[in-house]
Design a binder for these strands. Structure first.
Lengths: 204, 204
DNA sequence: GCCTATTCATACCGTTCGGTATATAGGGAT
DNA sequence: ATCCCTATATACCGAACGGTATGAATAGGC
């Protein structure tokens, strides 16, 4: 009864596709079209699998979206957590803005930010989707606010400027960046936006 | 053959609903749900008319959306054009930001900005919608840029700060404002965002 | 009163939506 | 070889989608 690997040969017929590859395909579709704009037909086409395979492997459309959102945060939003390690609040902001810019300049990924797209779209059916995205965004906001609280305690901000307000301001710029990227702004224009934001960043 | 008013009694059976009231209802639905998220069933319910009446009066869903977008710009975005008359670039920005804030604080209107919502959502079918919104936004951007060009010529900006870049920066903040308003930010938080943006506005 | 023109209400069109029942194919254990 | 379990492919489900055909209702022009 010596089993060398129980993971690679579980039981019945092995699946013929790669879970990660399929999920990456699903992410692309959700990213391009939003949750409601992504049809099962387009999803299965891009993932290279049939509908029953999709449902067996991922549950349903909403569960698939959650897994795609996990992948998105893990692979595409990694710069956000690492940016928090920068030495000053301004450096954090710079790494966040440049990270967002760099992501939008990728020619192989869809434009815009999946989180922003999903928090906007759309009808009543997608309310749980919006709620989930809001929850995750709140956690990102909390992390950045903690970092800015440190910066404020270190005296990096002008008097009267709350870390909470500055966090919200920085997020607004990044959200605006993704909106503009999604509606056809050029890399030059997005770069101008980042540079302008950095040039007006408050100093004490 | 003296006709006092050819407009009020055209020919056949008079319509039993008010065009403007119905259009206002359509605007609410598009505003809440986006173009694709708005179903004909919800539209007709909110407009208080039946589907054939809708098609006879407005054409089809896309034409109805265009008319609703016209109404939106006329009634809800009027502050944008009037803001351009402010004496300085900073005053223009202040009126734009406070105008956007005031609109988001209305308790009877949906949250977020219809233009932003429509430019994000959603699938391939809605590509002409995105294009139309992009066209209108470009005209708003051009108007603000002309105004900032004047300001730059008047020496209101620091050296190296282009009016184009500042216009894009201000739009980004307003877009971020509408994103945050649409995902449940409180009036206090949105007000903080506006105040912070104004407090860092560049001066020469 | 009758014709014409327009609106209204109902019922329906074909298509697409997310999701599944069913039968077949393929690998591990015995 | 047989059994068991899982993945595959096809074909299908009811519901909702945007849009329309149809006939009754309601006005003006003659």
């Amino acid at each position: 009864m010596n089993r060398l690997c129980t993971l690679t040969a579980p039981k019945g017929r092995p699946r013929e596709f790669d879970l990660d590859v399929a999920l990456a395909g699903a992410l692309r579709v959700f990213w391009r079209n939003g949750y409601e704009g992504a049809s099962m037909a387009e999803l299965t086409a891009e993932m290279g699998i049939t509908k029953p395979s999709l449902y067996a492997a991922f549950g349903n459309k909403e569960a698939l979206f959650h897994k795609a959102l996990d992948l998105y945060e893990r692979e595409k939003l990694a710069y956000m957590t690492s940016a928090l390690e920068a030495p000053t609040a301004r450096a954090v902001a710079e790494r966040l803005l440049r990270g967002a810019l760099q992501m939008q300049m990728s020619t192989c990924d869809p434009k815009g930010c999946l989180s922003v797209i999903s928090s906007v779209a759309c009808s009543a059916e997608a309310e749980p989707i919006k709620a989930e995205v809001a929850k995750r965004r709140a956690s990102s906001e909390a992390a950045l606010m903690r970092r800015f609280d440190e910066a404020k305690a270190a005296g990096e901000f002008p008097d009267g400027l709350e870390s909470h307000a500055l966090m919200r301001y920085l997020f607004a710029i990044m959200q605006g960046l993704s909106i503009q990227a999604g509606s056809g702004a050029t890399c030059t224009e997005l770069n101008q936006l980042v540079e302008t934001s950095l040039s007006v960043w408050p100093t004490r």
